[in-house]
Amino acid sequence: MFKVIIADDRPHARLGLRMLLSASPEYRIVGEACNGTEVLECCKRLLPDLLLTDLKMPGLSVIEGAERLKAKDANMKIIILTALDECEDIYKAAKAGVDGYFMKDTDPGQLLSAIQCIMGGAKLYQTKENIDHAQDRWNAHAGK
């Protein structure tokens, strides 16, 4: 059973994620947050296994928050869900140590299996191109 925190400034989006995860018994939603600062507080208090968060929220920048959270607890998985399609953000997110980056129009079924993969230790970043290509670009950019 994984403890999950959902963060999004739109109540509808949080509700959607809650519905999506509640279908799978291995996830238990322990908290919700609606801005960057709340995300940090929630994570400090509830120590989740997974943080599922929107990219653009009021308050502290999510990428900066992710970097801090990862520095404290590298085992905590962080997945960013966004409606924006900006390559730069993926690079930044990957540099910050985020484990997954998906568009919100990803098929919910695929999203669930992707989350499962990430909980198993994978790192997945999705752009408008396919995931493999994104990984290549990231590697190229980071010079790894």
Partner: peptide
């Protein structure tokens, strides 16, 4: 976009 996200999950 958020509505559609919600709708797709539903």
């Amino acid at each position: 976009a958020q509505e559609l996200f919600f709708l797709s999950i539903q």
